[in-house]
Amino acid sequence: MTRSLTILAVAYFLMALTDLGHAQNTLEKIDKSGTLIIGTRNGSPPFAYINKNNDWVGFSIDLVEQTVLPALSKKLNKQIKLEKKESAPATRIPLLTSNAVDLIAETMTDTQSRREQVDFSLTFFVTGAQFLVRKGSPVKNIESIAGKRIAAQQGSTNAKIIRERVPSAKLVEFPDQPAAFQALSQRQVDAYTNDGIQLAGLKAKAPKPDEWVVAGEFFSYEPYGMAMRKNDSDFRQVVNVGLMDAIASGRYAEIYEKWFGAKGEVPYPLTPENKRFLQLQVVPK
C-alpha cells in the first residue's frame, strides 16, 4: 500500500513538472502584471550585491533598470516595475522555466549547452577565469596549480575547465563567493578561481585589498549574457534593443564608468577590443 502510494506521488510530481509548459509569452505576462521579475545575485560585486546601505545594486541590475526597463515600458506603453529575486547557478534555469523570473541578470556565462535550455541576450560583458591568491603565492597561472587546493564556485564553468585540464588539482567547490573567500583567507585553499572581474570585485571589497593578487592569464572565455525563456523572441528582441540602444547612445559607457571606472567600485577599464566587440553587436535600426 505504502509503496503504490509512493509510486503515485512520484508519478504525480513528474507530471506536474512536465505540465509546466504552455503559458502565455513573457511580454504578455509582464503587460498583465506590470512587473519585470529578474533573477540576480546578492554576493557578486560589482554585478549584483547588497551594498553597505543594504541596497541590492550592481552593474547588471543597473543595466536592467536603465536599458531593459525603458525599452519594455516603451514597447508595452506603460510604466513597468522591477522586482528582484535571488538566483544561484543551480537555480537560475529552473527559475526561468518555472516562470518564477523572466530574466536572469547577474554573471551568467553564455554557453552552447545553456543555449539548449534558455536563450541569451547579446553579450554585455566579457571576462575570463583567473586566480585570486595571497601576495607571493606560488600559484601564478593554471600551469602552476597541480596538486594545489583550489576553491571554485559550484556550478561555474571555471571548475569544469580545471577538472579537465589539471585533474591533479584538488578542487573544493563552494556555493557562493563569501564562503570561498573565507576558505582562502583562512588558508584552507591555496587559490580561488572565478571570472577575473569577480575576483577583482572581491579584492576591492576585502578588508586589506593589498594582500591579494588576481593572478594568471585568462584561461577561459566568459561572455556574460542575460538569460530568458527559450523561444520567446519578442521579449528577447525588447531586451536586445534596450541593450543596443544603450551601447549606441553611450548610456552603457556611463553605467560602465560608474562601476568599473577609475572612481568606480572596481576599477577595470574597458579595453579597446571589448569596446569594439560591444559596438559590433549593435545592428542598424
Partner: peptide, 12 residues
C-alpha cells in the same frame, strides 16, 4: 546533481 546541471544545463 548540481554538477550535472552545470555540465548539461538540465536542472529538472
Amino acid at each position: 546533481t548540481r554538477q550535472i546541471e552545470t555540465y548539461t544545463a538540465r536542472a529538472f
